[in-house]
Each structure stands twice: as structure tokens, then as C-alpha cells.
Design a binder for these strands. Structure first.
Lengths: 242, 242
DNA sequence: TGTACATCAGTGAACGCGCGTTCACTGATGTAC
DNA sequence: TGTACATCAGTGAACGCGCGTTCACTGATGTAC
């Protein structure tokens, strides 16, 4: 009946069942409270069968982290495709700067929040265990976070060029963006029924916009004088138009 | 020998021992892994005596959260006393704005990091369990966080007045500042030996500065035209001086 | 073709252990009269 | 003053339970010759 391939496929299916079971239990009681037996029970296998798939609970945890990282990659990729860098590259008034930031930031909240809803358990685990009690998990997440920061940094590089302004320490800005994104994410994922998605989503958008505006403005002094002068005259023109 | 007062004092001492024991165990294995018996063992009392002090582990956890909140109050109070609002209220160039932000931010990193070192376990618990698995803890921490945001908002209000610029949603800015502070704090508290305090401290300082610069600049459009014009002419003067 | 052996996901019994909680108790102190 | 009673932090024995892990096993599939 079952060929060798079918047996292997069945094993993979069971492995997935264990991960799904573990995720649901994580959401209820947290990763630290997971027990091998409860995970096996929820997955519908004998406790002893667990060892055919993972050496221990920590190894299962790391598998879940890797899965979560893939989701975050997908999420940031979708965000990237949604980013529209304004075409008014020449203008440099503060108002235009804020408009460029707004355009850049726009796709973040809606897309991230879609992922927060769809992959609630997985992302909650990823964000929470970043500072959790398992050092194996912390190490794994820290490595993956570095890659996410790199990915986001590429987008910021593009924004910086489009604005014609340096961004100072780009990785620092990317890291702070992720901090804000994760913090907002946890806020809705931990207590989804009580909280108002729309408000938190808007608030995340605003926080990111403030940060980016600050990052772009703070390195004004480093731009060459031609750019700085241009910015000033633009400012005057804007004033006259009012 | 022991008067009634002495007995009461002894009870309080034991209660404190339980909290200290719990804190140390939290740091090792996380709050979710605490057991009543392990806490009692570490505190040097019989497991059954635990019930003379707390109904269960969650109640002990909430006591620790309250203690941590006091420490955070103390920390932010000390920061507030260290804030120096620049006296150059009249000037409004971007450069001066950044200088005011820098002056405002300066006390945060050194003072917060002192507290992170001194109250490592307590603050780690407070920051981590904000999104942990015990809903009683989450609720308690959330309430205390609101008060911290209010406290910080008062300082931002002063900064806003000193700059003559509105700050938009002040609580949103305060909340983001705390997010950054907690995130940096966790970074060093979770793995103190591996990480370089100086770098993380500087990086927190920079992140806060970017945020505040962004918050002050982003509501430019809302200032009255006199202020906006003044800012522009200042900008030109600054240019001429270079 | 058949035979002997290897591989491996999944099983069920059994182990010793630490857990939270209950219970009746001790012994020191305070209080009522 | 003495006597009887209440209060209460701390104790030790005992309970039933879920845990991680071990072990020898099953039964289906693949492989060597």
C-alpha cells in the first residue's frame, strides 16, 4: 500500500502536526510551559513517538522559529512590492519630505497586520521568545532578526537615495522600525478580541513615520550646502504660496 | 522574646525572601517555569508556608510587577531631574532643534542603564511579561505602563513648550520612547556578559533622538505661519554663517 | 523467484520525580474576664 | 493575678497527577543475493 515516498510524506505530515499542536499550546500557555506529552497528545501520537521527529522541545521550538522567519521574509517582501517612492525627487521642503515618508510607510501597517492575523501564533512566538528563557531560541531568533534588519535596510537605502538625504546608521533605523512593528504586533496578537486593530494599526503607521522623518532630518547637517540651500529656498516658496 | 510587631516584621521579611527567590529563578528559567515548591525551597521555607504569603504564584508575580513599577517610577524621576531644557528658546533652525533634542535625551541612557544593571531581574520580568502567558500579569503591567506613559508625557510637554513646537500625539511619542527603552533594556539584561553596554546605550540614545526629532518636525505644518517663517529665516542665516 | 536481514515510524508499559494542594498539628503571642 | 481561648506563621506527611525518558516491541517497506 504505502510506498517509501508515502512513508516519508507521512512522517513529514506528523512533524507538521507536532508543530501545529505546539503552536496552539504556546498561544495558550506560552512556550516555556510546553510539555512533550501535551504536544504529542494534541498531535494525536504517543509521547514516545515525539522522539522520531525532534530531540526535545527546544529543537521543535527552533523549527517553529525558522518557519516564522520565512513568514516575516514573505511579509517584508510583500511590503517592499507595495512601497511607492514618490517621484518628486527634486523637492526638499519638510512638507515634501513628510509626504515621501508617508508614501514609503503606507504599505507597512496594512500588510503587516494581515500577517499578524493570519500567522498570529507563529509570529507571537517569534517576537516573544526573542527575550524568552530558552537560550537556544534566543540565539536562533537573534540570527534571523539580523537578516530581517538587513532586508529592511535595503528599502531604507532606496528611500534615502530617493530623498537625496543620508540616513545616518541605516541598520539602526531598520532595527528601530522592527522594534516598533513587533511591539504593535504583540499588542494586537496577545489580546486580539479586546484591542482595536484599526487604532493600533494607525498608531504603528504614525510611529514609523515619526522615526523616519527624524532619521532623514537628523543628518541634514551632513548634506552638502547646495542641497541645504535648495531646501531653504523651497521652504520660502512654500511659505509664499500659503 | 518576639513581640507582635516583631512577628509582623518577620513575616514581611519572609515575604521579601520569597520575592527575591522568585526573581532569581525567573532570571534563570523564566516566570512561566516558576514552581511554588522551587520558590519556597530557595527562600528556605516549607512549601506549605508559601500559602501564608501568597494565594498562588500569579499573586507573587503581581507583587513583583508592582515593585518593578516603583523602580521604573524612580528611574524616570531621576531622568526628569537630569533633563536640561536648552535656554535658546528663540532659535528654531533644524540644527538648534537637534541640539535641544540631544540635551533633552542626554540623561536617559546613562540613568536607565544604571537601573537596568541594578534591578536586572525585576525589570526584565516587567518588560518580558508584558506579553507573557499569564493574563493577570499582562493586565497588571499594562495598567502600570499607562502611568509610565503619562509620566513621560509630562516631560515631553515641557520639551514641546521649550521648542515652541507641538508634538502631535504626545502619548504616542512617549509610548514609542518606552518601547525603545524596554527593547534596549532587554537586549543587555538578557545576555549581559556577551553584549557591549556602551554600544547599546549609545544606540538607544540615537534611536530616541531620531524619534523626537521626527516628532517635533512632523508637526511643523501645524505651527502658525509666524513661527514657520522665523524658522525659515533662521535657516538662511545659518547658511550665511557657514 | 524466495529467503534473510536492515530500516524505521509508531507503540505501550514502566520508571522515578517534582509538582500543587489538603490536612492536622506546633508553639508563640495577644486578649477577655 | 491566673485561666481559657483566639490568632497565626510555619511545619511535615500524604495524596494523586503529569512529566521526560527507557525499553523492547510491531509491522510495513526496502535490499542483498
Amino acid at each position: 500500500m504505502a510506498s517509501r515516498e508515502e512513508i516519508i510524506a507521512q512522517k513529514e505530515k506528523t512533524t507538521l502536526s507536532l508543530m501545529e499542536a505546539a503552536l496552539e499550546l504556546c498561544a495558550e500557555e506560552g512556550f516555556a510551559s510546553l510539555s512533550l506529552r501535551s504536544v504529542a497528545r494534541k498531535a494525536g501520537i504517543a509521547p514516545t513517538s515525539f522522539y522520531r521527529h525532534f530531540r526535545d522541545i527546544d529543537e521543535l521550538g527552533i523549527s517553529m522559529v525558522m518557519e516564522a522567519k520565512k513568514i516575516m521574509d514573505e511579509c517584508l517582501g510583500e511590503v517592499r512590492r507595495g512601497i511607492q517612492l514618490s517621484s518628486l525627487k527634486a523637492s526638499n521642503s519638510v512638507k515634501d519630505l513628510l509626504r515621501m515618508v508617508d508614501n514609503f510607510i503606507r504599505p507597512f501597517a496594512p500588510i503587516c497586520f494581515q500577517y499578524f492575523e493570519k500567522y498570529n501564533y507563529l509570529l507571537r512566538l517569534f517576537f516573544q521568545e526573542r527575550t524568552g528563557s530558552s537560550s537556544a531560541m534566543r540565539t536562533a531568533i537573534s540570527t534571523e532578526m539580523d537578516q530581517l534588519i538587513d532586508f529592511l535596510s535595503e528599502d531604507l537605502e532606496k528611500l534615502s537615495h530617493a530623498c537625496g538625504k543620508p540616513l545616518g546608521d541605516i541598520r539602526l533605523v531598520a532595527e528601530t522600525m522592527l522594534t516598533i512593528i513587533m511591539s504593535s504586533g504583540m499588542e494586537i496578537m496577545v489580546a486580539p478580541e479586546k484591542s482595536d486593530h484599526e487604532i493600533i494599526s494607525q498608531s504603528m503607521q504614525d510611529k514609523l513615520a515619526l522615526l523616519l522623518a527624524g532619521a532623514l532630518i537628523s543628518h541634514e547637517a551632513e548634506t552638502d550646502s547646495k542641497t541645504a540651500l535648495k531646501m531653504t529656498t523651497d521652504h520660502i516658496q512654500m511659505k509664499k504660496l500659503q
